[in-house]
């Protein structure tokens, strides 16, 4: 009886935690879109990233969660902040409309991208099967899968990123010559 109570408690706590994290994530995202100060926006994006990472952790996806923190908060958010500071001032620009004139086009693009991501996920037949399993995936298993079944995609992505890196360096070098 007590055990069942405990289990119910944990389930309830889990769902409460999920709602808190969801609110953090969504509020961060909304604030990032609506705030006028670019640095504030970037910080809110970081908060949103943190919320996503914590949701991963709540789903027992340790590796993905930590990788999310390491990559998105540790690197991407910092990069965004750097770019904001290095390009235009962080001052609030007065007299700029809340929505840009091309917002319908933006909405359409967003919807398309969302559909493009969501459709394959929803169409995956294994999705429902996996959900029944325990979601916990040990790091070792992830590594073995990456080096075994998925070694080709991994290498392709690595190659792509390397070429992007080299391209960035080349662009920067050309700039220096002038």
């Amino acid at each position: 009886m007590a055990e069942r109570l405990l289990l119910a408690n944990i389930v309830m706590l889990n769902s409460i935690a999920f709602y808190i994290l969801a609110v953090i994530t969504l509020a961060g995202a909304v604030a990032a879109l609506t705030l006028r100060n670019l640095v504030h926006c970037a910080l809110c994006v970081a908060a949103s990233f943190a919320g996503i990472a914590l949701i991963y952790l709540q789903l027992d996806a340790e590796f993905v969660g930590f990788a999310q923190i390491l990559v998105y908060i540790g690197a991407v958010a910092i990069l965004v902040l750097f770019t904001v500071l290095l390009t235009r001032g962080t001052e609030v620009q007065a007299g700029v409309a809340f929505l840009s004139r091309s917002w319908p086009a933006g909405l359409a693009v967003t919807a398309l991208v969302f559909a493009a991501i969501a459709a394959p996920i929803l169409l995956t037949p294994e999705l429902h099967k996996l959900a029944a399993d325990s979601a916990s995936a040990p790091v070792r298993k992830i590594g073995e899968e990456l080096m075994g079944n998925y070694v080709l995609p991994l290498e392709v992505i690595g190659l792509l990123l390397t070429s992007a890196l080299l391209g960035a360096v080349v662009i920067a070098m050309q700039d220096k010559k002038d």
């Binding site: 340790e62 930590f66 990788a67 908060i73 540790g74 040990p138 790091v139």
Partner: peptide, 16 residues
């Protein structure tokens, strides 16, 4: 299980 990854992930927050 991924403690060392946790360490570096959380440690990177100090930059922010």
């Amino acid at each position: 299980d991924a403690g060392i990854l946790f360490f570096f992930a959380v440690g990177s927050a100090s930059e922010l």
